[in-house]
């Protein structure tokens, strides 16, 4: 636990010294969402129908974009090797780094999502569901992405490869995340979707730190 806290403190300190790392995914998220009204149609009725999917896809892409650096900087300056040599299981390291990643890239997305929802004319009844589904879904995205980030660490051109590896695994999260928001917009119950998103989060929490830790040790 002390080891994990130390990693969390260190990574947060690194982010605080390099705030662009935190802001870039957020700007990217807003930009991608802003492209849809311009590209598809600025009509409110059409936008409110597609809002759920657009927000979820944009959140997914923003997460993916920031995941590339999850282990890369530590790998490049050699500190990753030292951290893996420490007498703690590698999943501790992964879990701590994923937690910081979510805090830095996932949480801001959730906080800004009501604004985005308003821009896309999502019915205001659906906004709490949107935030809740993002709250349950984005940690899963960060956890699943950690496997890909660990696998491509040290591979040239890893960013594109990471996208190829991880997007298929994101499919269930986006299906249930987006449909929960769509259901809420229609005034239907969302408990089932939330339960599934929660189950996926717990499942990812159990499996992915182990898999990513094994991948880091290759």
């Amino acid at each position: 636990m002390g080891f994990m806290l130390a990693i969390i403190r260190r990574d947060l300190l690194l982010v605080a010294r390099q705030p662009a790392e935190m802001i870039n995914p957020l700007v990217f998220f807003v930009l991608v969402v802003a492209l849809f009204p311009l590209g598809v149609s600025p009509e409110a009725s059409l936008l409110s129908q597609t809002a759920a999917g657009v927000i979820w896809v944009a959140a997914m892409l923003a997460t993916l974009l920031s995941l590339e650096l999850l282990f890369k900087l530590d790998h490049d300056d050699g500190s990753l090797e030292q951290l893996l040599l420490a007498p703690y299981p590698s999943w501790c390291l992964v879990l701590a780094k994923v937690f910081v990643h979510w805090l830095v890239s996932g949480l801001p997305l959730i906080l800004i999502s009501p604004l985005i929802a308003m821009m896309l004319f999502l019915p205001s009844d659906a906004v709490p569901t949107l935030m809740l589904s993002l709250l349950l879904g984005t940690p899963t995205l960060s956890l699943l992405g950690a496997i890909g980030a660990a696998l491509v660490t040290g591979v040239r051109g890893g960013g594109m490869l990471l996208t190829l590896l991880i997007l298929p695994l994101y499919v269930p999260v986006i299906i249930f995340g987006a449909s929960s928001v769509a259901a809420a917009a229609l005034g239907m119950p969302v408990d089932g979707y939330m339960a599934l998103l929660g189950a996926m989060f717990v499942f990812a929490l159990m499996i992915t730190p182990w898999a990513a830790g094994a991948a880091l040790k290759l």
């Binding site: 696998l151 491509v152 591979v155 040239r156 490869l161 190829l164 590896l165 997007l167 298929p168």
Partner: peptide
């Protein structure tokens, strides 16, 4: 999605 997974596995296998 299975086809995409195969594509990912193939890409990873060839990248390393």
């Amino acid at each position: 999605v299975l086809l995409f997974l195969y594509a990912g596995v193939m890409a990873l296998n060839q990248a390393i």
